[in-house]
Simulated assay, not measured.
Amino acid sequence: MKALVSIYMFSFVLTCQAQVSDLEIHFLKNIEFLGYIIELGDPSNNDPNHAISKLIHQYPENSSKKSLEEIFSMGADIDYDVFISLMHSLPDLPLDPSYQVPAQQATDLGFKSDAELNFIRTLVQKVNTFYIESGFEKIWTDLKPYRDSTLLQLTEFAPYDSVIKEVEFFYGSSFPKYEIVPSLTIWSGPGWGGTNAEGNTARFTLGPIRFTLGPIEKDYIFKMEGFQSLAIHEFGHAFANQIVLQHDTELKETEALFLPIEPDMVPQGYSNWKTCIVEHFVRAGEVIVLEQLKNSSRSEALLQEYRDNRKFIYLDFIVQKLKEYRVANKLGYKKSVKAILLDLHDYYLKD
């Protein structure tokens, strides 16, 4: 018990220190519950005898609950990033029985019509019902010692001020606050980046991974290697998404560029040109910022990995153009994006 108290107090001190630099690292119960739902539907290959696995799966009967089946049925076509944004925006579970998702919040998540608003409200009710039926409150409580030790570990190798400042310099803007939300239950991807509903916090959610170019790590392990580039990448979404998606005309005119890479992009979760080109720009920013931070080996390795193995075939072009417009000539990021979209059209699509 004394050791756990020490871990908790030390992690609390480190988290407070991070807040001084406008960076906060903390767990969220709603995100852990989303990971739990995903785990029940598509189990990870973590060691079933691991202490965390045993705590997560202490109620095997939950996998056959009707409320869980209804969540899977309704949420089958919702992207992870939308579901994560939804869970971030909800009050802590369990919800008050009278709670309804506000109309503006639903609109911000892409649910705009009356039918879509009713759909997302019903889905949230199902999530709340399953939360209560599942006994997840006890799982959340039982996992606290592991959250405390993970906070301690992650805070020790959180991105330094210099990293965030370089990201801000590259994109030409900043956020009042930066937030990292780790998860012991979400294993299905390295991270999801974006902003909060108010747009004043850049954040990313991450599961236990090996921060390398290799596969997801097993058994709830977080490792130092690659954490810097992951932070640059996921925080980059908070800056790039909103800017790239403003250019409706240019995105429409370059839409045909998605066709040759669609078979490679869809399995990675990029089902249309907008999500694909946003990812191109975020990865280009990651490559350039790492180079600016004098981490050339990592920058070059990522460029090769993304281009050759992940099939982001326009990445070289975008990196070079960003270096020309943004880095060398100090053109604003928004103007650089527009110019590059026009260049992509002229280079690849003009007769």
Results as ranks from 00 to 15, higher is better:
residue 332 G to L: 03
residue 195 T to S: 13
residue 23 L to H: 06
residue 284 A to I: 09
residue 274 K to D: 15
residue 277 I to S: 03
residue 134 S to Q: 04
residue 209 I to A: 04
residue 187 W to T: 02
residue 143 L to Y: 02
residue 145 P to F: 08
residue 134 S to F: 01
residue 131 Y to M: 06
residue 20 V to W: 13
residue 299 S to M: 02
residue 32 E to S: 02
residue 256 A to K: 10
residue 184 L to K: 14
residue 110 G to L: 06
residue 72 F to W: 12
residue 283 R to C: 07
residue 298 R to S: 11
residue 199 G to Y: 09
residue 333 Y to R: 09
residue 126 K to W: 05
residue 128 N to E: 12
residue 121 R to N: 15
residue 129 T to L: 10
residue 223 K to L: 06
residue 110 G to S: 07
residue 263 P to G: 04
residue 241 N to E: 13
residue 188 S to M: 12
residue 53 S to L: 05
residue 161 D to K: 12
residue 84 I to K: 04
residue 322 L to T: 13
residue 211 F to L: 01
residue 112 K to M: 12
residue 153 Q to R: 05
residue 243 I to S: 12
residue 319 V to H: 12
residue 95 L to T: 10
residue 217 E to H: 10
residue 237 H to D: 05
residue 286 E to Y: 03
residue 136 F to T: 01
residue 296 S to C: 13
residue 59 Y to W: 12
residue 17 Q to R: 08
residue 148 D to K: 06
residue 27 F to R: 07
residue 217 E to R: 03
residue 20 V to M: 14
residue 68 L to S: 05
residue 302 L to V: 02
residue 23 L to N: 03
residue 220 Y to M: 09
residue 171 Y to I: 02
residue 95 L to Y: 13
residue 342 L to S: 14
residue 127 V to Y: 03
residue 211 F to W: 08
residue 254 T to N: 07
residue 234 E to G: 03
residue 58 Q to L: 10
residue 57 H to P: 07
residue 289 V to S: 02
residue 22 D to V: 11
residue 286 E to P: 03
residue 203 R to F: 00
residue 253 E to R: 11
residue 328 A to M: 08
residue 120 I to D: 01
residue 31 I to D: 02
residue 216 I to M: 03
residue 94 P to K: 08
residue 303 L to E: 10
residue 320 Q to C: 12
residue 128 N to M: 13
residue 87 M to Q: 03
residue 286 E to C: 08
residue 51 A to K: 06
residue 322 L to G: 13
residue 285 G to E: 11
residue 41 G to Y: 05
residue 280 H to W: 04
residue 170 F to N: 04
residue 251 L to E: 09
residue 261 I to W: 00
residue 70 E to Q: 13
residue 109 L to E: 02
residue 179 E to K: 06
residue 157 F to Y: 12
